[in-house]
Simulated scan of single mutants.
Amino acid sequence: MSSIKKLNKSGPKAASYKACFTLGSGARRVRRSKLVKTKREAQSWLAEQSLKYPNMNTVWRRSLRFEDYYKLWFKMERANVVEPATADTYSVTLSHLKPFFKKGIGQITNMQVQSVFNALGKTLSHATLLKDLSHLRMMCRAAIRKGDLSYNPCEDIDLGGNNARIKPYEKKFMAVSDLRIIQDFLLKYSYEFTDINRLVIFICTQTAMRCGEALALRVDDIDCKARTIRVDQSYDSAHSRLKVPKTPTSNRLIPISSECANVLDGWIVQHQKWLQDAKISNSKGLIFLNKRGQLPTAKNINSSFHQLQKRLDINPIYTVHSLRSTLASLMVEQGVPVTYVAKALGHAPGSNVTLKYYIDVLPSAVQADREQAVKVISSTGESGTSGRSS
C-alpha cells in the first residue's frame, strides 16, 4: 500500500515528506520511495508511479490538483512526441487555465469549463481559446482512458474570443506599392557583415519563405546557376536549434530571379571570407551566421524590419510574416494557380491553410472595389432605371 509520511527534519535542504510506493506482494512486490519537500510533490510522484503500472489504483492521480495532473499528463504522454516550440504552447495553456481550476480533475464539470472559457474569451483570441480547449480535451481523454474520469467535461463547449486580439487586416497584408519599395531598396543595397538581418528580410521578400526557413539556409541550399533555393530545415530561434519542417511538404525547391541569385552569390563569397577573417567556425555552412558565430533570432529580424519600414517612410506595422501573406495574395491576384502557391509556401496538398490564412484581397484591390461600389450606388438613378421609389 502506498503512503506519504511526514518527516521531522529541519534545515533549508531537508526533505519534509517521504513518498512510499508499494505494489504486489511476496517476491514480486515492488517497493519504491522518494524524499521530497512538499506533500504536493509526494502526491505527484506517487501518481506518476501509478501510471507505470496499469493495475494500480487511481487514488493518487485523482487526488492531484489540476495543475499537477496536467503537468504529469504532459510529461508522460506529450513531452517526448512534440517539438520544443509546441511544448511551449502547452505551458501557455496551463498558465491560462490554472487560475480557474484549483481542485482535482474529478471535480471539473462541463458548466465550469464553459464558464472558464467565457471568462478567457474576454481577453484571448478565438484561435488561442481553440488551442487551449484542444489541450484540455486531450488531457481529459487520457484521464478517461486511465480511469481517472468517467466523462469528458470539455465536449460541446462554445468558444467566443476577443476580436481585438486578432491581427487587423491592415497589418497582415501590405500594399503592393510598399512591397515594391522595400524589394527595390533591398535589391540595390550593398550588404556588409553587419547587415545579416536585412539580407534575411531580402530573402523573404523574394521567396515568401518563413523567417525560420530563411535563417536555416546553408551554402549548399543555394544554386545560383539554376536560380533555386532548397528548403529542408528551419531555425527555432526560441530554443536556438535547427529542426526539420513539421510536414514533408515544407521540403521544397523555390525558384528565384537572376537578380536575387546574383545578390546571394556575392554574399556567400564575402560571408565566407568574413567568417574566416573573424576565425568563426561554420561547419554546417550556414549563410547567416553573425560576428558572434550565431544565427539572429526571429525577434531581431522583425525589429530590423520595423526599422527599415521607418527608414522608407512606410507605416511600421508589418512583420516579416506579412511579406509571406502579401506575396501569396499577389501571386494569386496575378493569375498563379492556388495549387502552385500552396506548394511554394510549403502547405500540404488539399489543405485549406493557404486560402484561409494567406490569400485575401490586397489593399489596392479593396480600394478599387470600394470606389466601384460607391460609383454603382451613387449612379443608381442615372442608369436608365424607372426611378420609382418605394
Rank of each mutant, 00 (worst) to 15 (best):
K18C: 06
K18Y: 05
T22N: 08
R29I: 03
V36A: 05
K39M: 07
L46I: 04
L46N: 03
M56A: 14
V59I: 12
F66M: 02
Y70I: 01
W73I: 05
E83Q: 14
T86Q: 02
Y90K: 00
S91R: 15
V92C: 10
V92F: 14
V92P: 11
S95V: 08
K98M: 09
I108H: 00
N110M: 11
L120M: 06
L120P: 00
L124Y: 06
S125T: 03
L130M: 15
K131E: 08
K131G: 05
L133E: 01
L133D: 01
S134V: 07
L136D: 05
L136F: 03
I144C: 03
R145A: 08
D148M: 04
P153H: 03
I157T: 03
D158E: 13
N162Y: 01
I166S: 09
A175R: 08
S177V: 08
S177N: 12
D184Q: 12
F185Q: 11
S190M: 13
Y191G: 01
E192W: 09
D195C: 00
L199M: 01
F202E: 09
Q206L: 08
G212R: 01
G212D: 01
A214D: 03
L215Q: 01
A216H: 02
D220A: 07
D220G: 04
D223Q: 03
S234G: 10
A238N: 13
K246E: 07
T249A: 15
R252G: 06
L253E: 12
L253Q: 10
E259Q: 11
W267V: 02
H271E: 04
Q272F: 08
K273G: 09
Q276I: 14
A278N: 10
A278V: 10
A278G: 07
K279Y: 15
I280S: 02
S281P: 07
N282A: 01
N290F: 07
L295N: 02
A298C: 15
K299M: 11
N302W: 01
S304D: 08
Q309G: 06
R311M: 09
N315A: 15
Y318K: 05
S325D: 10
S325K: 10
S325H: 10
L327V: 03
L327D: 04
M331T: 05
P337C: 00
P337Q: 00
V338T: 04
K343D: 14
A344N: 14
A348F: 04
P349Y: 09
S351K: 06
S351P: 01
V353S: 06
Q367C: 12
A368Q: 11
A368F: 13
E371Q: 15
E371H: 15
V374R: 15
K375E: 14
I377H: 13
S379W: 06
T380K: 12
T380R: 13
S389A: 15
S390T: 12
